[in-house]
Design a binder for these strands. Structure first.
Lengths: 340, 340
DNA sequence: CATGATCAGTTAAGCGCTTAATCACCCTAC
DNA sequence: GTAGGGTGATTAAGCGCTTAACTGATCATG
């Protein structure tokens, strides 16, 4: 009916006890007899009582919320399935609990820092999730300075920072070995921006593996995850000297974009050119030929990060959690290297 | 440095005034002299003071947050650029202000209702955004019962419910006329689930226009926005009796999926089959042939909805805001109908 | 039978902020 | 000289909940 929200004192009145007793009862703490507790509980949910988060936060200092800020231009974020999958995973781990997710999308790093600082100041969140770490990331410094519980989604940065990571290096190697087995020797990696730590990690793994496999000099080019940049870079690589027979991308959007470029250049995929996407998604399945991709457990990462964060907030130990390994899903965009 | 968050009483102490004075000063209300106000302000931001949202909510009853719950299966949500664009728009309108966005992704309607109810009970949000309305939507009833300010993103449902809507009907007509001009007469609409109001709105417009243009009986088939369902439905339609020469989809993912099916059936797009997507996105640009699409101002909708919601929360009048019109972006997936 | 324990509650302070009510001045006006 | 009127502040109550400290019983124990 009306818009009156019952408070514990309404319950207290109805039960003929003090508000203190009600609080103890509802929080399952000792101090009230079993029958009284039951009576209070009954009244509480007959009245449809829900604790006021503001009052709770104010008195116990916990916000029952965690924050995520995503700093990628709107242009990119719309296309990439990555974040929505991540958010799905996060919600999965949050479901049922008292904790909510505060989301912010910004388009510059300064705004992101400001958001974290504001949330902290307002005591709006108990902790935050950090994604897309860059070298010497100022956010890491910030959360440490503020003593704001945080979990890094990506790769271990320092032993005192909890994180959830995925073994990308092994996956890079697996992809390379797979391509080499198909006869490819000129393989170019189309990576994301250099500043991201995960870009560097993968590039390092790539370079090392290329050397180990005796493929000559490793070639890595960079784009910004957008289809436009990827198209530009791919076009240049494919029309330059000693063009590669296989391309490995850092996300799915860029790989799909490259498919268009190949088409435009009259290169048949996979007969003349093989393509591998990172981050499998419906996108990869949807296009023709369907893209071979490295599937990472994105939702799992999100869920694990949330669990870890809630742990850390609860005073648990700092851990570095490893997710299940990425796996290569071969589809129709990879095949034998062209002869000669 | 440390993790001590200053409160107004710290400021009061430093300024040698009462906390009341500090509060008046920081909120720009009368009751303090200009010099004192300035002094207080200075101290406040030297100390890096940020108001505690919990304390504020508790005392003034406002949460400074709005909520959005999206109820689509994780499988679908990851692919569709729609929501991320919507969220971008929402954030744009929120940026700079004191209001944050609380997001929840669920996979069933009951959980969605529960989320709204909980947020209301916890006084966590000042208002909510409602998307994907269905016929006689229980959420509308709920927010009215709770007197929870809400803005519907979609179509007007009732005069007392504020909403932001886009003129889909005209767009449907425009698309049809465009296709008819290209010589198409057998046009099938591949729609989203019937339960959504916007599906019905578009279907009605489609049926009416088909009749008016003398195209015989209107054909509408339904899928659930996913690529799998779209592929299934498209396959059936294209291999059935009197196959259409043009298909109009209710989102981008389904259209892309249909492109794959056409390929699989050896139908050349656009020579033998024309395809139109709803909701333009990078997806449409990325595939070959690039998809003709109806572009809707998604981010604009989000931003307008937020502005309206903040208005309503502030006690403003209930309005029905119309966004700019959708526009057809012709690309390579539409062409002359095949002869005969 | 006095002495602790134990149990079931109550009281009241406090979390950080807003705001109505009050107060102490100083200034005009009659 | 005193009533009235602004200013520029202070006081204190209250928002809804948690929790340490306290109160009164009831009950076993030496």
């Amino acid at each position: 009916m009306g818009a009156k929200r019952p408070t514990i004192s309404d319950i207290a009145k109805a039960a003929g006890v003090s508000t203190g007793a009600v609080s103890y009862a509802l929080n399952n703490r000792p101090g009230v007899s079993e029958p009284t507790r039951r009576r209070i509980m009954d009244i509480a949910d007959r009245l449809g009582w829900v604790p006021s988060s503001a009052a709770r936060s104010l008195s116990d200092g916990r916000a029952n919320a965690i924050g995520l800020v995503v700093d990628r231009p709107a242009r990119v974020i719309g296309v990439e399935p990555y974040f929505m999958q991540l958010i799905s995973g996060i919600q999965g781990a949050l479901a049922g609990g008292p904790t909510s997710l505060l989301l912010q999308v910004t388009d510059n790093a300064a705004a992101e820092l400001a958001a974290y600082r504001r949330w902290w100041g307002e005591r709006r969140v108990d902790g935050v999730l950090l994604v897309d770490l860059v070298q010497n990331d100022p956010r890491v410094e910030l959360v440490q300075e503020l003593r704001l519980p945080a979990v890094v989604l990506g790769e271990p940065v320092a032993p005192e920072v909890p994180c959830v990571w995925t073994d990308d290096e092994t996956a890079v190697i697996e992809v390379l070995e797979y391509l080499v087995a198909l006869g490819h020797r000129r393989i170019v990696r189309v990576a994301g921006p250099t500043r991201f730590v995960h870009t560097q990690t993968r590039s390092r793994a790539f370079t090392t593996a290329v050397a180990r496999l005796g493929l000559g000099e490793a070639r890595v080019v960079h784009a910004d995850y957008s289809d436009e940049a990827a198209a530009r870079v791919t076009r240049r690589v494919l029309t330059g000297g000693s063009p590669p027979t296989a391309l490995v991308f850092d996300n799915d959007v860029m790989a799909v974009s490259a498919l268009g470029v190949a088409h435009e250049l009259g290169l048949s995929v996979p007969d003349q050119l093989s393509l591998v996407a990172w981050d499998d998604s419906a996108l990869c399945r949807l296009v023709r030929p369907a893209l071979s991709a490295v599937r990472r457990p994105i939702a799992e990462r999100g869920a694990a990060a949330v669990r870890l964060l809630l742990d850390v907030i609860g005073g648990g130990p700092v851990e570095q959690v490893k997710t299940s390994d990425p796996e290569l899903v071969p589809r129709s965009s990879t095949g034998q290297a062209p002869a000669g």
